[in-house]
Amino acid sequence: MALVEIRDVFKSFKREAQTVDVYTGLTIDFEEGSYTALMGPSGSGKSTLLNLVAGLDKPTSGTVTVGGATVSSMSPSQLADWRARTIGFVFQSYNLLPVLTAQQNVELPLLLTNLSRKERADRTALALGVVGLSDRLDHYPRQLSGGQEQRVAIARAIVADPTLILLDEPTGQLDAKSSEEVLELLRRLNKEFRKTIMMVTHDAKAADHASTVLHLEKGVLLERAGVAT
C-alpha cells in the first residue's frame, strides 16, 4: 500500500528573471515500510521532493498525499500540526539546537503533544536508547562527535513515532565509521520498527542500504528499482 502518493506534480522556481522547472508532471508512489534512496546530481530535485513530501514547500500544481492526507492543500497551521505527528526530518548538518542538551533536543517534538513531563522523559530516553546514546542525555551538541550528533538528530526524528522519516544527506558530514553506524541504525528503524524512510544521498554506499534506489536528473526519474512505481 502506498504511503506517499505524488500525482502529476509540477514545481518551478523563479530565479531572478528566469523560471526554473524542477518537476514537470512527476508521478510516483512510495510504499509503506519502504526504504528509498534518492540519488542524482545537485539541482536534480532530490531535496525538493523531500520538502514537498514534508509540506515544507508546495507544488506549483499537482497533489502530494501522505497517509491519505493531502499535504499540498493544507494550511500552514494544519501542516505544522500534521508534521509534528507524521514526519521525522534529519538534516545533513544535524541542526541540533546548541543551547539544549541531547535529551532536550530529542524532547523538542514532544513539547507539541499533550504528554506529561514523565511520559516525555520516558519516550526521550527510549529514543536515545534506540540510537545508543542513553549515556549522553545531558551532553550538549558541542560535547558530542559528528556521528553522535547525527544519532541524536535521528532520535529527535523518531521520538514522536512518525510514520515517515525523511533524511537529507544524513551521512554527508560523517566519517566512514560514523556513516556506517547511522546507516545501520536506519536499517534497524526500517526493518525492526517498520518505519518508511526516504533518504537523499550522494553516497552510493549509503544508497546500497536502501531497498529501492531512485535516480533523479533534472526532475526526471531515470532509473528505479524495488517497490517504487
Partner: peptide, 14 residues
C-alpha cells in the same frame, strides 16, 4: 534553528 523547529512541527504562531 527556527527553520528546524518549524520542520519539527512548531507552528508560526508558536
Amino acid at each position: 534553528e527556527v527553520a528546524v523547529m518549524k520542520t519539527v512541527g512548531f507552528s508560526d504562531r508558536r
